[in-house]
């Protein structure tokens, strides 16, 4: 039995004006991975490729060791999904939508669904078109969780939600994942969401993986060095991984905080890098906003 929930290797896909370039990452069983990057970085394309909604040009995708195309139905039976656009029939009630979807899953747990519906305060007798985006996301999440999926794929589930609702959803999500069997791939461009729940982070930029690392590694090794131009001069590559210039000096992103401390001494201020810093600065030279 493989220890990986998801293995993506050398994935390629081309569209007019955009290409995924040899995307490779893996998600161990029982962990949460954040797929993060600006709009148009390729997050949704990767998810569509995993779900076999678009055809890959090269590469391999394995879900619990199974090829996502050759063993399509078996793979999808183990995946729960929440998309940014849910795609429910608008003139059908939530109860009927559930009745249409539940028979596809052998492990459908009706009691769990009803419990989630109560917890999320889902009005099951209402038609889809009467509900807000937030309620529909909760409904999609309830459907995804009720068949006891081993891998949850969440594509921008928090986009379009207000901050209160977003926090509530994330809280609910982490609460529901107390068992250590379920793995989650969570795509978002809101990095603060990932700070709360991700164990691993994969940063995408222009269709390529710019970084894939554990959150602990990011927390312990990555930092922002703030100082004058001498800080930038001292931290030559590979120590500096990105730069932001502003009127009073520079902020340098480094992936080796210890080396940065040794090199800069007391000549610079060193802060922990937030995920947002990493996403914005990685491999770039950014003027201050």
């Amino acid at each position: 039995m493989t220890n990986q929930a998801l293995e993506v290797t050398g994935l390629r896909k081309r569209y007019k004006g955009f290409a995924l370039k040899d995307v490779t990452f893996s998600l161990p069983r029982g962990y949460v991975m954040g797929l993060v990057g600006p709009n148009g970085a390729g997050k949704t394309t990767i998810i569509k490729l995993i779900m076999n909604l678009v055809r890959r040009e090269a590469g391999e995708i394995r879900v619990f060791g199974l090829d996502n195309r050759r063993d399509e139905a078996a793979v999808k039976a183990r995946i729960g999904f929440v998309y940014d656009e849910p795609g429910f029939h608008q003139d059908v009630t939530l109860a009927d939508t559930k009745r249409a979807i539940a028979p596809f899953y052998r492990r459908w747990n009706e009691r769990l669904f009803q419990d989630l519906a109560r917890r999320f305060e889902l009005p099951l007798r209402h038609k889809v078109k009467t509900l807000s985006q937030g309620m529909l996301t909760k409904f999609a999440l309830a459907l995804a969780l009720a068949h006891e999926a081993d891998l949850l794929i969440l594509d921008e589930p928090t986009s379009g939600l207000d901050p209160v609702f977003r926090r509530e959803l994330l809280h609910g999500l982490s609460g529901l994942l107390q068992n250590e069997e379920t793995s989650i791939l969570f795509s978002t461009h809101i990095t603060t969401d990932l700070e709360r729940i991700a164990d691993y982070v994969t940063v995408l930029r222009d269709g390529a993986v710019a970084l894939t690392a554990s959150r602990d590694e990011l927390r312990e090794r990555w930092a922002i060095v703030r100082g004058g131009d001498e800080a930038l001069a001292a931290l030559a590559p590979p120590l500096w991984r990105g730069v932001r210039r502003h009127a009073y000096g520079v902020d340098v992103l480094t992936s080796d905080v210890e080396a940065a401390r040794r090199t800069c001494g007391t000549g610079a201020v060193i802060d922990r890098a937030s995920l947002d810093d990493v996403v914005v600065l990685l491999d770039r030279e950014v003027p201050h906003a």
């Binding site: 909604l53 139905a73 999808k76 429910f88």
Partner: peptide, 21 residues
Amino acid sequence: TREEKFKAMRLGCSLPVTRRG
């Protein structure tokens, strides 16, 4: 065509079925 109208085809094809099915 209703499935198309509601953009529900993506959801339908994400269920544990093959396109052939």
